[in-house]
Amino acid sequence: MRSTSRAGATALAFAAVVLILGGCAGTPSGAAVVGDWGSQATGQPHLTIQNDGAFSGSDGCNSLSGKGSINGDVITFGPIASTLKACEGVDEWLGKAASGTVSGKTMTVTDSSGTKIGTLEKSN
Rank of each mutant, 00 (worst) to 15 (best):
D36S: 13
W37D: 00
W37I: 00
W37S: 10
Q40H: 05
Q40W: 02
A41F: 00
A41G: 03
T42K: 11
T42L: 14
T42H: 03
G43Q: 06
G43H: 05
G43C: 08
Q44G: 01
Q44T: 03
Q44D: 08
P45A: 07
H46V: 00
H46L: 07
L47Y: 03
T48R: 13
T48P: 01
I49G: 01
Q50G: 07
Q50M: 13
Q50I: 01
N51I: 02
N51E: 15
D52C: 12
D52M: 14
G53S: 10
G53T: 03
A54Y: 02
S56V: 02
G57M: 10
G57F: 01
G57V: 04
S58N: 05
S58V: 03
S58M: 11
D59V: 00
D59L: 08
D59G: 09
D59N: 14
G60Q: 07
G60P: 06
G60M: 11
G60N: 09
C61S: 08
C61M: 05
C61V: 04
C61D: 02
N62H: 09
S63I: 03
L64M: 12
G66W: 05
G66K: 09
G66Q: 06
G66M: 12
K67C: 03
G68Q: 10
G68H: 08
G68N: 09
S69G: 09
I70S: 11
I70L: 13
G72T: 06
D73G: 09
V74K: 15
V74L: 07
I75H: 06
F77V: 12
F77Q: 15
G78F: 07
G78V: 03
G78Y: 04
P79I: 01
P79N: 13
I80Q: 12
I80E: 08
A81C: 03
A81I: 05
A81E: 03
S82A: 15
S82C: 10
S82W: 04
T83W: 09
T83F: 11
L84R: 13
L84W: 01
L84Q: 12
K85F: 04
K85A: 15
G89Y: 07
V90E: 00
D91G: 07
D91C: 09
E92A: 15
W93M: 00
L94M: 13
G95W: 02
G95R: 11
G95Y: 04
K96C: 06
K96L: 14
K96A: 15
K96E: 15
K96G: 10
A98L: 06
A98D: 12
A98S: 11
S99V: 01
G100Q: 06
G100D: 07
T101S: 14
T101A: 15
V102C: 11
V102H: 03
V102M: 13
S103L: 10
S103H: 04
S103D: 12
K105G: 07
K105N: 15
K105F: 01
K105W: 00
T106M: 12
T106Y: 00
M107T: 02
T108Y: 04
T108I: 05
V109W: 04
T110V: 15
T110G: 00
T110P: 02
T110E: 12
D111M: 12
D111T: 05
S112T: 07
S112F: 05
S112H: 04
S112V: 05
S113Q: 13
S113F: 02
S113I: 02
T115M: 05
T115G: 06
K116Q: 13
K116S: 13
K116L: 03
